[in-house]
Design a binder for these strands. Structure first.
Lengths: 343, 343
DNA sequence: GATAATATTTTACGCGCGTAAAAATTTATA
DNA sequence: TATAAATTTTTACGCGCGTAAAATATTATC
């Protein structure tokens, strides 16, 4: 008696003494029914644990409460962290987040966009590959479904962008490095997958010029997402060839820095900001492991949580009151200097 | 003309000259229709890019082609990697994988189980928290939906388990450490979240007894998933207190080892297997960063890909021919010793 | 206690597709 | 070319729920 199986809303309405349309209202917004009715429903709910069939629900809604979240690579802790924050923000706002990773492959990004289309999400939070993305496809997608970009921008597409101000963050790091020792060389990927890498290079060049020092850019060859391996191999090669004209290397991201730190260790090079150190290495992103490298990594912290929640809030606002803010928003957050032991 | 919008399968059947039921057959299995019919459909498909509404499809199917994949924490690279492999295996087999992370919180595991229920998956690949899981809930879940466990087992529940043989892997590591230097102490969490930790402790104890050496277990206090931080703080404290009776520490997993390595570095302790080193540290899991630690970490490699594909294959077999293999399967894979520089 | 305002129930239709059964067509076999 | 076999079309129903409109019941206001 207490636990017979409820097949559908009709059956549930029977055992619960409330009509099906009222139940439907309740499941869409529990506050939209009278208190006494709500109590009756919740009582029955505890007894029979019925839940509406999401497929039937979503079929009959013109719009679902799904939010698509898509990142280029969940195996990268940066995206793992930020994806988690976005997911929680969506859930807290009463939406159903669906996290997708493209596993570092632009082709999967395209496939995921198709998947998202069929999921009919109310909106999408998208960290795109950037130039490497199928830009036309992304553009078409963004015309049909509200999209807020985060981390990486695609100019002119989508409704808004939230990310870190690379100009500010790189300038901050360059300033610190110049004040505390020799001016930095830049170590980066030769053909970077991420548009932020290009922005950081430009920011580095401008900042060095502003500070009156010559810029030195050293590019690691290699493809793919194995940044640590590339940083270790190429960075190690450059170190052993004495390729860097100053004793300070600013890596375009922490993962390259982690690789280079490991190469420096193997070469017996003492890294750090002390006077007895021959080399300084800095990174960018405040990777979860950057505080456990040897030595701990001086870097720039992006505000993961703030980026995630702002992007999510922006999207929710658009969904809940469409056509209000017609202009495309662009939010750039400041990075924070994290002074540790490597530089 | 070339790109009018197709609203549903009826409309598509009109422009394509094939009846709707035949289309339905086609979308479920393109090979089930005549070649000429298939060609007609695919031709129209390229022109109008219609796709069936997945909500309507799944509502009318008694069973979907969804596969739920659930791990305790995607922010942990181990689960990130293995989750990715499982996801790809599902997709290659024509299923729709849905990856869920519990973000290290058992409460979210319960919530995700409810979510999975409503997704009506054909099967679920589950890496459970273990003891900390709501075992009753998992058990009920596994009664309704085919579940294959991986990484961590819950005895007697689910249809099968695929994981690494901790007895074998720990014995292998202990053997190596004993042969190449002093016998190891074990460093682990005091209240481990993962059942594998307990298995590894037992395996360590047995192996040390077999080798005729006294066992020494050192437990780090601390809660949560910040293993590196805990390994660094507690491991560093123990090192500075000279708490370890031998010069060799076997960490229960790589993340603890990474923390301890960073602490050793801070303390100026030279770690490695060379004669000029005072300390040896080994790990378990072959964490993606273990080759970039300073020094690189000697550890045990679990075969991520093999675990993932075997678990997936097992599940597919059950789904496609239910009630065939009635006995609960248990697959334990061997770990491999990865000799690097830390021990 | 009568009237108005609000909430609920009844009734009814539609969403897009799976799927079964019977009829019609196409293809294979003799 | 006639017959059998395979495939497709036609017809028809159902899945579980959203949602609109009208009828009814409940609550608030005076």
């Amino acid at each position: 008696m207490p636990k017979q199986k409820i097949r559908n809303m009709d059956a549930f309405s029977a055992v619960c003494g409330v009509s099906r349309p009222t139940l439907s209202k309740f499941f869409n917004d529990p506050d939209s029914v009278k208190r006494s009715t709500r109590a009756k429903i919740e009582q029955a709910l505890a007894k029979y644990d019925y839940r509406p069939n999401i497929y039937a629900v979503n079929q009959n809604r013109q719009i679902t409460r799904n939010i698509g979240i898509m990142v280029p690579n969940l195996a990268d802790p940066f995206f793992s962290e930020i994806g988690r924050e976005v997911e929680l923000a969506c859930h807290d706002a009463g939406y159903s987040p669906i996290v997708l990773s493209s596993h570092g492959r632009p082709a999967l990004e395209a496939r995921n966009l198709n998947l998202l289309r069929s999921l009919k999400p109310a909106g999408v939070l998208l960290a795109p590959f950037g130039r490497i993305s199928d830009v036309n496809m992304v553009e078409k997608f963004a015309k049909d479904i509200p999209v807020v970009f985060f981390d990486a921008n695609i100019d002119g597409i989508g409704e808004a962008f939230v990310g870190t101000d690379n100009d500010q963050s790189m300038d901050l790091m360059v300033e610190y490095l110049c004040r505390s020792g020799q001016p930095p060389c830049l170590f980066e990927m030769k053909s970077p997958l991420n548009p932020n890498a290009n922005k950081r290079r430009h920011a580095y060049l401008e900042s060095m010029q502003r500070h009156g020092f010559p810029a030195h850019i050293h590019q690691a060859s290699g493809e793919g997402w194995d940044f640590e391996a590339i940083g270790s191999a190429e960075g190690g090669r450059m170190l052993s060839e004495n390729a860097f004209p100053t004793n300070t290397v600013l890596c375009s991201n922490d993962r390259l820095a982690i690789g280079m730190l490991s190469a420096a260790y193997s070469l017996g090079l003492r890294v750090g900001h002390g006077s007895n150190c021959k080399l300084r290495i800095a990174g960018h992103d405040d990777h979860p492991y950057s505080r456990f490298t040897c030595p701990s990594l001086t870097t720039i912290a992006q505000d993961y949580k703030e980026i995630a929640t702002r992007a999510a809030q922006t999207l929710f606002a658009m969904i809940e009151s469409p056509e209000s803010g017609a202009e495309r928003g662009k939010t750039l957050l400041d990075g924070k200097l994290i002074m540790r032991n490597s530089a």
